[in-house]
Amino acid sequence: MGEITFIVLAALVVVTAYFTVTSPNLVHAAVALMGTLFGVAGLYVFLYADFLAATQVVIYVGGILVLIIFGVMFTTQIGSQVMVKSSAPNRLASGLAVLVLFVGLANIMRQAPWHRGELVAVEGTVKTLGTSLLTRYLLHFEVAGVLLLLSLLGAAYLARREHG
């Protein structure tokens, strides 16, 4: 049962990622991206990262994806042909380069002596995550907060309407 779910999730992630990359219609690409993000959230559940899966759904699907669709709607003129892809030679060269990178990285992944610990049973990561965020990773937590504030101000400043 778990095996089948995992394979279905992996297939969902890969297929929707493919459509995100190749679809000429940006709204279709955004919807495909939603499938990818949901699939990755499901994989997080398999990795015993329940809080991260919920965060992924709330922030990526609920926040970033909505922002992206806003961006698509804002910047597309109705009826105009939007040039999405680059020229065919560029696509061919990029595809070859990515293919070579893929084969190389897959080989490295297969041969590398990854460090493996023993698998321990995990029951809920929320408590552990909260404790480590406020003790060992407190500085990271605060810096992330400042970064969020700064980017909020920066984005509002950049996108404001000019007066006069």
Binding site: V13, A17, T20, K85, N90, V98, F102, L105
Partner: peptide
């Protein structure tokens, strides 16, 4: 790895 390669391909070929 597959996700990364797709993303890289998008960054290299998309013009929007």
């Amino acid at each position: 790895l597959v996700l990364f390669c797709f993303g890289l391909y998008a960054v290299m070929t998309r013009r929007n």
